[in-house]
Design a protein around this nucleic acid. Structure first.
Lengths: 289, 289
DNA sequence: AGCTCTTATGAATCATTGA
DNA sequence: GTCAATGATTCATAAGAGC
């Protein structure tokens, strides 16, 4: 199956009005952080961020299926020596708007930005806030199981008593008294912490997140053939990934330059169909450790 | 030097009134989470948590030195399928009280609690909120440096072309690698993500955090001889660690049972002086990956 | 297959200057 | 003074190629 991946230029606040209720299964996005990409988004100030975001989130909610998820990758900046509070204020505001704050996943950035300061260390993590419309929602946990890797094979071959205990606790099965259960199992469920390196080819148009991030959430919260929306699509990563996973997608960006880049990225990217012949699907091994 | 490690029984709200202003250099604690340890703290409900906590935090602030830090290890629980908001509300309230929300460190629990649910994965992280009274505060970054990997030695012998080029072209915000910085450097600075395994030693009195957690913050935010406070000391971990690091400490707990346990733990634990003869100081390698 | 070595890579902060 | 803009400074790692 070849899936549609449409890029629309405009402010998602207006662009989304064209879409019917309950059209999408997943909204996943990394919005312009406050004060970043100032030229394009008019440099929303941190203190205005919530008010800027809310009406857009209202649209996201309208076009999202009842069983859908909304994943928001965001991190507050430091201002005046303090972490700014606009993100946690946004969480509270979104709840008032009717969203459920179901979970907060963490993206641990293995390669974070360099730097050194007297009052803090380098920032190596971002939030992936998971909101839903309902307590019951679609979640395919098996789709993101991680291989246990060499580690398991080496360890299990020679079973010292300590090894068994340590093995069980590291995998998180706890109570892994019955190691035999694990021997035949190749995969383990991940936790709510994702370990991903950032990747960004294009310096001029830095991608917000590495492909593996939307990939993880698309696998987790949608089925093949479902519809994915990224209302701040930037260089197109979400749509490229969605297509390669066999999901339809819509990406919106206010900046014509980004839209052009996104379209090119999609045109040059493999579809699921082509992947099936050319290469194995991306290994989830890189996703969560 | 043998340091005092005093355990006081009582509610820290009242107990701290005996202490003068600016007595402590660091407050580090893992408070009874909402709804946990209900018998002892009267089972503070999540919705009452902020109001319960605030007057105590006011005392913490009073007895903390101007250059001091307050580290709060906490994680919101899931209620009714949602993450509760009492922690982020607490952050906002503490700022209103005059605290600066300087940073949010993460404790990534390498071996988190087992379990499986249809709508979420295992929770593998907790917040370590860092509050200060001032923008300038005591921070000994070198005290928590971690050994570098072996790769460093080889690295210096033959520098990749990329290293040289990027460093040379310091124009245009290219990343530079000042190799001189690496000469004679055996250790690396950590990031704001801590990778620590939980200790599951005594299940009867579930330790709030592993020793390595208070150890890291005590090293980072105090000097030897400084004074550390844990107002919800539980089984005494903070005081045990503080003493072994040569810091004076006060631990407070409302529960006489915990106080007894804490006192025993301290009595049976090594002082810094004894450690100097018996064993090398704890290797920081275990602290942050 | 393991080991060595090479290369790629990043949504940052802070201090200072100018309006 | 307060605010805004600019520039200087800053690491550590993982993945892959090669032997």
């Amino acid at each position: 199956m070849t899936c549609r991946a449409d890029i629309l230029q405009g402010d998602c606040l207006e662009t989304l009005a064209r879409f019917p209720e309950g059209h999408f299964d997943l909204v996943v996005t990394s919005p312009p952080y406050a004060d970043r990409r100032a030229r394009i988004y008019g440099g929303v100030k941190p203190e205005d961020y919530v008010n800027w975001f809310l009406p857009r989130a209202d649209q996201f909610r309208r076009v999202l299926k009842d069983s859908g998820s909304f994943v928001l990758n965001i991190k507050e900046k430091v201002e005046n020596g303090e972490r700014h509070t606009f993100v946690i204020e946004l969480i509270l505001a979104l709840r008032k708007q009717g969203w459920l704050w179901t979970e907060e996943y963490l993206w641990h950035k293995r390669n974070c930005h360099p730097g050194r300061w007297p009052n803090r260390f380098r920032d190596a993590w971002e939030r992936c806030l998971h909101f839903t419309r309902n307590r019951r929602f679609k979640m395919n946990q098996k789709a993101v199981m991680v291989p246990m890797g060499d580690w398991k094979h080496k360890r299990l071959r020679s079973l010292g008593k300590n090894d068994v205990v340590r093995f069980a606790s590291q995998v998180g099965s706890g109570f892994g008294k019955n190691v035999a259960n694990w021997k035949n199992r190749e995969k383990a469920f991940p936790s709510n912490v994702l370990h991903l390196a950032t990747e960004c080819g294009n310096k001029a148009h830095s991608a917000a997140f590495p492909k593996a991030l939307p990939e993880w959430f698309i696998r987790l919260f949608t089925d093949p053939g479902d519809r994915v929306l990224d209302p701040f699509v930037g260089s197109g990563t979400t749509c490229v990934v969605a297509r390669s996973l066999g999901r339809h997608s819509v990406g919106i960006d206010a900046d014509p330059g980004f839209c052009a880049i996104a379209k090119r990225a999609i045109a040059g990217s493999p579809t699921e169909a082509s992947l099936a012949f050319e290469a194995p699907p991306p290994a989830p091994s890189a996703l969560a450790r």
